[in-house]
Design a binder for these strands. Structure first.
Length: 416
RNA sequence: GUGGAUGUAGCUCAGUUGGUAAGAGCGCAGGAUUGUGGAUCCUGAGGCCGAGGGUUCGAAUCCCUUCAUCCACCCCA
């Protein structure tokens, strides 16, 4: 094999693909219950959308984007995340003229140029929700609990929620000043952190270096600097989560890698993943619509990594495949020819049915039926053609019964 | 982008100091059972030993390069 899938991409084959269908089906069902409607946006956008939306200084924009120049000389980027495109669409289609907020969900592939690792791919898939046009803490709470419902109904138990508020453009600068002052007074931060003190001091907070973490214990906490509005907003979010009985950890060092966040940010992590342990995360991005479209409209949402979720669903793979209901084995050419119309008739009745195409021995056909986990085998040979009946074999019990051909779909429908 | 580990049959893996070493199990195909699956037994197909180059009389084995995978860092979904 000379041509392989590009680095960081992968094929999703049966039976694994059944798990993906199941995850998507479940997500759609939850969204229906919460009255979130699907939005589909292009897989590529103008590079500028992400540069401005996500932030020029972020890792995503600086080193992770799949960007190229198209034949018309435009700079195009394969979307690295879903929020900026949804916001672009909202603004372009002038949805702000409708009753707000608008509640959307989306599915689809995202692209980031990174070294692949457990739970991290260059093409990966996200399920996300966005609520545009409300500043109510109740909306933040709703998106979080929607995501929690989703993963809980898929059977996940071993996860935890971390939340924080990173304030707004009114109160954050005051905090950043204080933080910067403190950080500059320390000598012993790692080189990475040293660089960030100037470029993005907030990001110093989530450095994983234990020495840095130690130094950060004394650092000023943003919670002490939130303006009255942000503080009230944050406590209402926490109150909402309390009402719902959702336990969470407040983590004052939780900040996000994307520039557009304001107020509430959160991450939901698993204990069963490797270093890439975030299942879904998000928060409020009240500044993004202004940044992209000069309209001051608040919004909030999250994105969930489907590959990571799928890793956590690995063990129950067997539950997601569906068995074949009927397998037709034939003996002789006449029976084989006849089975074509019988198959269609059975399939038309809504029953899944298949056959062997190799003209093989009855034994081989039965073996194939067994491998496909068929519930019933129909045996059609010259005897059956003569009597216009089929031998129906229950593959679990081995019991066999003669059933008239014109009764066959009724019989199968009742038995299955 | 940085560091470490690993690439041998469809899958999981053996392969000794470089020298009859291209192997096993599972899976697949056929048969024992030509009209009956699962168990057992028999037979068979399937490999450029990741790729390229080098050292050597001789390379799956040693060296270099490259590609890929896994893990960690960075960062995130």
């Amino acid at each position: 094999m000379s041509i392989k899938a590009p680095r960081g991409t992968k094929d999703i084959l049966p039976p694994e693909s059944a798990k993906w269908s199941y995850m998507e089906k479940k997500a759609r069902e939850i969204c229906r219950r919460y009255n979130y409607l699907e939005i589909k946006t292009p897989i590529f956008e103008h590079t500028e959308l992400f540069a401005r939306g996500i932030g020029e200084g972020t890792d995503i924009v600086q080193k992770e984007m799949y960007s190229f120049t198209d034949r018309g000389g435009r700079s195009i980027t394969l979307r690295p995340e879903g929020t900026a495109p949804v916001v672009r669409s909202f603004l372009e289609q002038k949805l702000y003229g409708q009753a707000l907020p608008k509640k959307f969900f989306y599915f689809g592939p995202m692209f980031r140029y990174e070294r692949p690792q457990a739970g991290r791919y260059r093409q990966f898939h996200q399920f996300g929700v966005e609520v545009i046009g409300s500043d109510e803490p109740a909306v933040d709470v709703e998106t979080i609990i929607l995501g929690i419902d989703f993963i809980e109904e898929l059977g996940l138990k071993d996860f935890f929620v971390e939340i924080n508020s990173i304030g707004c453009p009114k109160c954050r600068p005051r905090y950043l000043d204080k933080l910067k002052n403190y950080l500059e007074g320390q000598e012993d931060f790692c080189s990475n952190c040293q660089n960030r003190i100037d470029t993005n001091p907030l990001r110093v907070l989530d450095c994983k270096n234990p020495d840095c973490q130690e130094l950060l214990k004394q650092a000023p906490k943003i919670n002490d600097f939130l303006c009255a509005e942000c503080a009230s907003n944050f406590s209402q979010v926490k109150e909402g989560l309390d009402y719902l009985g959702l336990s969470y950890r407040e983590d004052p060092t939780l900040v996000r890698g994307l520039d557009y966040y304001t107020n509430t940010v959160f991450e939901v992590k698993s204990n069963d993943l490797g270093a890439q342990d975030a299942i879904f995360s998000g928060g409020r991005y009240n500044g993004l619509l202004k940044e992209i479209g000069d309209r001051d409209i608040p919004a909030t949402g999250f994105a969930l990594g489907l590959e990571r979720l799928e890793l956590l669903l690995k063990e129950e793979a067997a539950n997601f495949g569906s068995d074949l209901e009927v397998y037709i084995t034939t003996i002789g050419e006449e029976a084989e020819a006849f089975s074509i119309s019988l198959l269609r008739q059975i399939r038309a009745a809504g029953i899944s049915a298949d056959r062997d195409y190799g003209g093989r021995s009855i034994g081989s056909q039965m073996k194939d039926a067994d491998r496909k986990n068929a519930n019933y085998c129909l045996i059609i040979g010259s005897d059956e053609l003569k009597s216009q009946a089929a031998t129906v074999r229950n593959m679990q019990t081995g019991d066999e019964e003669e059933v008239a051909l014109k009764e066959i779909t009724n019989y199968l429908t009742k038995s299955l």
